[in-house]
Amino acid sequence: MTDFPLPSFLTGLGLSIIAVSVLMAVTFAVATAQKRHSVIDVAWGLGFVVVAVITFLASSGAGDGGRRVLVLVLVAAWGLRLAGFIGWRSRGGEEDPRYAEMLADPRGSAAVLALRRVYLPQAGVMLFVSLPIQVAMFSTAPLGPLAWAGAVVWAVGLFFESVGDQQLASFKNDPARRGTVLDTGLWRYTRHPNYFGDAMVWTGLFLVAADSWPGVLTVLSPALMYWALANRTGKPLTERRMSDRPGYKEYIESTSGFFPLPPRAGRGI
């Protein structure tokens, strides 16, 4: 077992808290000016890139160089792609129905409500979910087989997330398919390839961290992401919104709900 530089890690954690707080403050200002709090979705991916960069710099001379570079590259590739895609997808749009419903309470200050229900929770979740990134940056052991397996899992996740997003965007841009259900490509094997991919990305990053002590202790971070995507903010909200679309009931019955599986009549996972 190698020594973990706890004081340096705590310094990096403090810097990450400051950086995420500044990012959320800037995002809140932009959202208020645009009257559209859904811009925080763009900041979500960027926030993890900020944490990765901050801890990469803070861990110089403390963590293993190979692991630091690997984690920085993986997080930057995922976060910048996601932020760019969401920014492109939502350009010139109106407020996301999720945030409109969340902030519909007429009592009290709308700004305070947004901070309490959107920005502070997202900042907290971002810092917690990013713990594998932060710990991995300061881990001193050289890269081992588990870390490389994690990189492979990450690549599978990025494939599902990016290809699934692109297939959905193409589907929405096709007037001939308006009002129908996307059931081709990756969407033939899972109703949520983008959410499944996101879960695999974070599983992969956890494995990179768990390859060296004490990265295994961050297991609750990917577990939280999986729970949120499969049971809270991802899959359930999307399916509730799609429930009245013609053919969606049949799609649910034939297509796996999260993990990719061959389509089969009567399957609803």
Rank of each mutant, 00 (worst) to 15 (best):
Glu95Phe: 15
Val112Asn: 08
Leu72Asp: 02
Ile54Met: 09
Gln122Ile: 05
Ser60Gly: 09
Arg91Leu: 08
Ala123Gly: 12
Ala111Tyr: 13
Gly45Asn: 06
Gly45His: 01
Arg117Ser: 10
Ala100Arg: 15
Glu101Gly: 08
Ser38Met: 10
Phe48Pro: 00
Gly144Arg: 14
Arg36Gln: 07
Gly93Phe: 07
Ser130Arg: 09
Arg36Met: 13
Ala83Phe: 07
Gly63Ala: 00
Asp41Arg: 01
Arg117Met: 10
Leu146Gln: 08
Gly157Tyr: 01
Met102Ala: 11
Tyr119Gly: 06
Gly47Pro: 02
Ser130Thr: 14
Leu113Glu: 06
Leu57Asp: 03
Pro121Phe: 14
Val163Ser: 15
Trp44Thr: 03
Ile54Asp: 02
Pro145Leu: 04
Leu127Trp: 07
Ser130Lys: 03
Val135Gly: 04
Ala110Ser: 13
Val75Arg: 00
Glu94Trp: 09
Trp88Ser: 05
Ala141Tyr: 11
Gln122Arg: 13
Phe138Ser: 11
Val163Met: 15
Met102Ile: 06
Ala58Asn: 08
Arg81Gly: 01
Leu46Trp: 01
Glu95Ala: 13
Ala114Tyr: 14
Ser60Tyr: 05
Ala43Phe: 06
Ser109Ile: 15
Val129Gln: 00
Val42Lys: 02
Arg117Val: 14
Glu161Val: 02
Ile133Asp: 08
Ile86Glu: 01
Pro145Glu: 08
Ala151Met: 10
Ala62Asp: 06
Ala83Tyr: 04
Ala111Met: 11
Phe159Glu: 06
Val125Thr: 11
Gly61Thr: 09
